[in-house]
Structures are given as structure tokens and as C-alpha cells.
């Protein structure tokens, strides 16, 4: 079967969600779930290429856990940041849309990167074109257009997520 590994990843994700949602390990529930998941995998087998480049080894798993920790910390920080901005009577914002370049090729990795950027402090993905992400930033650090500033912006917004995602995908 073509793309067997990617289909197996899809099967695994669906199976985990089925067991979590039904909250039981009874045989009849498992068999019904197995049949439904097989049908779903066969139906959506063509668009399974979003998982391309995923690695299935212990090192990638360890980095996934590390990524979740980094992400949760960033998310809590982001909310403290938002709350302090909203409740501040002066409303300290300096918004703008900036452009950063990403090195990630895999579709799934880009989706996770964009989602993470949206949920972390002060940044929000507006558009993705080829290798560029356009980000609405609530407090732009530097407005002059040159390479040095571009690198600084990229590092500040996406740096820590991109490094870890490079190790899981690619």
C-alpha cells in the first residue's frame, strides 16, 4: 500500500481520540471504533500527505513532549500579557504586520508553527505565502527594513518553536 506509514499515523491519531472520547476499553467499543477508523482512513487516504516528513522514533517523541512544555509556558505568559494590556488604562499597543521567513517544508509542521504563533504573546498569523508568514504583532520592536532587523524579528517570534519542530519533522 502506498503511503503506508502516513496512513498508520492517521490511524493512530484517530484511534487515540476514539478511546479518549469513549472513555472505555470494552471490546465492543474497540471493534466498532476499529471498523469506523479503517473506513475513514481508506476514504481520506489521498490527502494523507500533510503528515509527510514525520519521524517515528523515541527522539522525536521526547522532543514532542519538550515542545508541549515550551508551548504551555508560552501560552500562560501570553495570557498574562494580554490581561495586563487590556486592564492597563493607557492601552500600550503599537501594532503592525511584519513578515518572517520559515525554513520548515512539511505542511503539518507549518500548521503547528502557525497555531503556536497565534496562541503565544502578542502575535497572530494573518497570511502564509510560500515561505513567508505575515504576522500581526501587537508591539512591533523595530520598523526599519533591513536584514538585521528581519533576523531579530524572526528569532523573537518563531525561533524557539522552529528549532524544536525541525527536529521532529524533516
Amino acid at each position: 500500500m502506498k503511503n503506508f506509514k502516513l496512513k498508520f499515523v492517521l490511524f493512530l491519531i484517530l484511534a487515540i481520540f476514539w478511546v479518549l472520547w469513549n472513555n472505555s476499553l470494552k471490546p465492543e467499543v474497540l471493534i466498532a471504533g476499529f471498523i469506523i477508523i479503517i473506513i475513514a482512513v481508506l476514504m481520506f487516504g489521498k490527502s494523507v500527505d500533510i503528515f509527510e516528513g514525520i519521524k517515528l522514533n523515541p527522539k522525536a517523541l521526547a522532543f514532542t513532549f519538550w515542545y508541549i512544555i515550551v508551548f504551555v509556558v508560552a501560552m500562560i505568559k501570553s495570557n498574562i500579557d494580554v490581561i495586563s494590556r487590556v486592564l492597563n488604562p493607557k492601552l500600550p499597543i503599537k501594532p503592525g504586520i511584519v513578515r518572517i521567513e520559515t525554513k520548515l517544508k512539511s505542511k503539518m509542521a507549518r500548521l503547528i508553527l502557525a497555531n503556536s504563533i497565534t496562541l503565544t504573546p502578542g502575535t497572530f498569523v494573518v497570511d502564509i505565502k510560500e515561505n513567508y508568514l505575515y504576522i500581526h504583532w501587537i508591539e512591533v520592536c523595530c520598523t526599519a527594513q533591513n536584514t538585521e532587523n528581519q533576523n531579530k524579528i524572526t528569532q523573537e517570534i518563531a525561533g524557539k518553536f522552529e528549532n524544536i519542530l525541525m527536529k521532529i519533522y524533516e
Partner: peptide, 8 residues
């Protein structure tokens, strides 16, 4: 208040 709009 917006300072920059690269996308546009």
C-alpha cells in the same frame, strides 16, 4: 496606531 504593514 499601526506602524508597519508588510503584507499590503
Amino acid at each position: 496606531k499601526t506602524v508597519i504593514d508588510n503584507l499590503k
